[in-house]
Structure formats: structure tokens, C-alpha cells
């Protein structure tokens, strides 16, 4: 029942992760890499500060695709591929946007990206959903 068509926009998802989000995400995911939790450590390895987990940002991309096109049905998302580039930072708004690339029967392919200001923290994201 895919009623999407190529070129349709995915409803934008806007989230501002608070200062403590990386700690909650670390607890939920089990990823306690100190580059996400410890600003001093992050700076010592050449990062601007502690950075968001890339897989958290990818989680927001997955949420935007599933919510925007499938009413949040966890069965709909069949494939998601992303590239992590610019560093995501806490306390800055993340905007996930995208558009439908093609529709084949029930299968919908969507291009997405996640930005903070002008920095693309996730680029070349592509989702495949079965609707």
C-alpha cells in the first residue's frame, strides 16, 4: 500500500540532544567510548569536544524514515545505510530530512541526511522500507 511517489519529502525530524544525552545513549546502547562522554579525553585525541554517538544519529534517521512513511511500524524498515562525516555535538539541533527516491510495488527507497547547522553529520543515507 505504498502511496508514496518519487520526490515526496519525508517529514522533517528536529531533535536537540541535551548535554546528558550521550550518557543516556551510552547506557541504553552499551557503548561507553570516552570520546562520547569525556570532553577532556575527546580533546586529547583531536576532537572539538565529546561528540554524539554516530549510531544515535543513525537511530534518529531510522526513526524519521519509519515515523514519516510507515506510522512508526518497526517492521517497515528493511535496510538502512549511512556514512558518518561531520562530528555531531550535544546541545545543537539535529535536523533529519529526506525524499523518496523510488517506489517499486511495496518497496520504497528514501535518501536522507542529518545536519547540525551547515554540518552534515550523516550523509548519503539510504533507507529501504516495505509499506
Amino acid at each position: 500500500m505504498a502511496d508514496s511517489k518519487a520526490g515526496d519529502a519525508v517529514p522533517e525530524l528536529r531533535v536537540t540532544p541535551d548535554k546528558y544525552l550521550p550518557y543516556r545513549y551510552a547506557g541504553a546502547s552499551g557503548d561507553f567510548n570516552p570520546i562520547h562522554l569525556d570532553a577532556e579525553f575527546a580533546k586529547s585525541v583531536g576532537l572539538p569536544s565529546n561528540i554524539l554517538h554516530g549510531l544515535y544519529s543513525m537511530g534518529l534517521v531510522a526513526k524519521a524514515a519509519a515515523q514519516g512513511l510507515a506510522g512508526g511500524d518497526p517492521r517497515a524498515l528493511k535496510k538502512l545505510t549511512v556514512q558518518f562525516r561531520g562530528m555531531g555535538l550535544p546541545e545543537q539541533e539535529i535536523v533529519v530530512s529526506g525524499s523518496v527516491k523510488e517506489v517499486e510495488g511495496d518497496r520504497v527507497t528514501v535518501d536522507l541526511e542529518a545536519k547540525q547547522g551547515d554540518t552534515r553529520i550523516i550523509r548519503n543515507a539510504q533507507a529501504e522500507l516495505e509499506l
Binding site: 544525552l21 543516556r24 543513525m58 537511530g59 511500524d73 518497526p74 524498515l77
Partner: peptide, 28 residues
């Protein structure tokens, strides 16, 4: 943490009504 609100992730009744064995995980 991800701000996902669908009750199938929180409530076993809602999950079973939607056809899952039990509370279902978000894909990520």
C-alpha cells in the same frame, strides 16, 4: 532515549495486538 513513542515498544498488550510475540525492539 531515541524519543520513539509507539506503544509496541513499551506495552506487551499493544505489541501482541500488532502481531508481535512480545514487546518489539525498534530496528536500530
Amino acid at each position: 532515549v531515541l524519543g520513539i513513542e509507539n506503544p509496541v515498544h513499551f506495552d506487551v498488550g499493544a505489541a501482541r495486538e500488532a502481531g508481535f510475540r512480545d514487546v518489539v525492539a525498534p530496528p536500530m
